[in-house]
Design a protein around this nucleic acid. Structure first.
Lengths: 260, 260
DNA sequence: ATGCGTTAAAATATCGATATTATTTCCAAT
DNA sequence: ATTGGAAATAATATCGATATTTTAACGCAT
């Protein structure tokens, strides 16, 4: 096993790594999914992608009744793809199906958010410990690589006020999934993936402009270092407090109204 | 908090409880769902229930291609309800959807089974600890009650050879969910619920006639006692070894062929 | 014989219309 | 005024047919 100290401290070794990536280190195919371009080009997939994006971004507000006919004319898809997409979104916890009364956007509440955060911490702690225990050198390299890549793009598109940077979002998820990727349970990873996306939705919904001034990169780097040292306790502690601070920062006005 | 010793040792207090149940102690509505009669009576629900049952029981073999037309004539439902039901079963991990190529029964393998068991242990340990930490007296009563009810029905319908007893299955699940019901995360409970059902499927698939002669009731009682004493470490240890033995017993011939 | 590109067959995805079911509105009775 | 219930309305669930896509089969060239 590799033992490095402060791998991300200077960035020197990392430039080598980044370079090496073009030749030797290939992206782990298992992680490729987290880039999510749009899946295939079937109508259903398109409907799924657009609806999902609009729910995550808050365009379709929590609790809103999702009437097939309405969505049909709004997005200009047939009713079958819409229905199918809504079905798929139900698996992701973004949409709730009401027995014989169609669908609605999953509701949000501070209580649900607390549960989400709590559950995420439970699952990610376990997943991270297992990942650290089982990860091989390829996993280590993927962690380093994804951390580096994340550090190369700005959190916000502009410096003065916050404008979400889609590329950062993608790399951020990639990094977090890379950390736990060696956890020997695809089911566990799937759950974490779901919960991660749920969390992103809450982040968007809370309309958190003006993101914390704290140095998120530094936190990521610290986690990366701990992970590479195989210091599970420290890595977990850092990751958990990473979540805790992010979480507490959010809890803004969530409008949990179940409106039509 | 109640502190009892060996509540299930004699069964005396339990008869009182069972009686009391007809009057004072009502079934926790939150647990009612685990009896699952058939949901509503819509065609889709019927299709869902039947397909699910046939997948869990192994009538629809793992990896089998689920052709809409075939299912349509076999079950005598329209194609829309079939499709909808398959979509729903995808959320439950019983069916896999292949991009633009329809559905298939979720495949099984020893590897997947290992992962399933492992993940279940991780989640249930956490859920049980949280449940013990947060459960109130009503939760305690539901645990006692579900344990008692489970103990009142035989594991097998006949004494000489094993014939699954549906009522036992229902009560067994009810008991296990009651243990963790006080875990303050509906998402966590949902995950555990899913994994439980997955496990049942594997149990059925491994065609385990001749179930272990070990006294499962005794194990359940021991877990119940530990839980009521709020002895988390012991309860977890018992529950985990309960799973471990059950799990190792299963690993029989799993036919993971992906046949049409 | 083997591999590739074309064509035929099968299956899924999609659509538009109809049947059911839930919701609302409105009116009468208390 | 308020409640109860029947009709009208709106929405979903379901069906059967058509359009696309995928898979399999076939024959030709190498």
């Amino acid at each position: 096993m590799m033992h490095r100290k402060s791998v991300l401290g200077t960035g020197i070794e990392l430039d080598e790594l980044a370079q090496k990536n073009d030749t030797a280190i290939q992206d782990d195919p298992a992680l490729a999914q987290y880039e999510d371009p749009s899946g295939s080009s079937s109508i259903t997939s398109q409907a799924y992608t657009r609806l999902r994006a609009d729910i995550m971004s808050g365009v379709l507000t929590p609790g809103k009744k999702l009437k097939i006919e309405e969505l049909r004319s709004l997005y200009d898809f047939g009713s079958s793809p819409i229905r199918e997409a809504l079905s798929m979104l139900t698996s992701d916890l973004f949409v709730e199906r009401i027995d014989q009364r169609g669908f609605r956007v999953a509701d949000v509440s501070e209580k649900e958010f607390d549960e989400l955060l709590r559950t995420r911490r439970w699952l990610e702690e376990r997943a991270l410990r297992e990942s650290i225990a089982h990860g091989d050198s390829n996993w280590e390299e993927q962690v380093v690589l994804s951390a580096y890549r994340l550090s190369r793009v700005p959190r916000s598109q502009t410096d003065d006020h916050f404008v979400a940077n889609e590329e950062w979002e993608i790399r951020h998820k990639h990094f977090h999934m890379a950390l736990i990727a060696a956890c020997p349970s695809s089911i566990m990873l799937k759950f974490c993936d779901q919960l991660y996306d749920q969390n992103v939705r809450y982040r968007h919904l809370s309309g958190s402009k003006a993101y914390p001034s704290r140095d998120i990169n530094a936190e990521h780097n610290a986690i990366t270092d701990a992970v590479l040292e195989r210091n599970a306790d420290l890595a977990v502690e850092l990751l958990m407090s990473h979540y805790a601070t992010t979480g507490n920062f959010l809890k803004a006005k969530l409008t949990p109204k179940t409106k039509a």
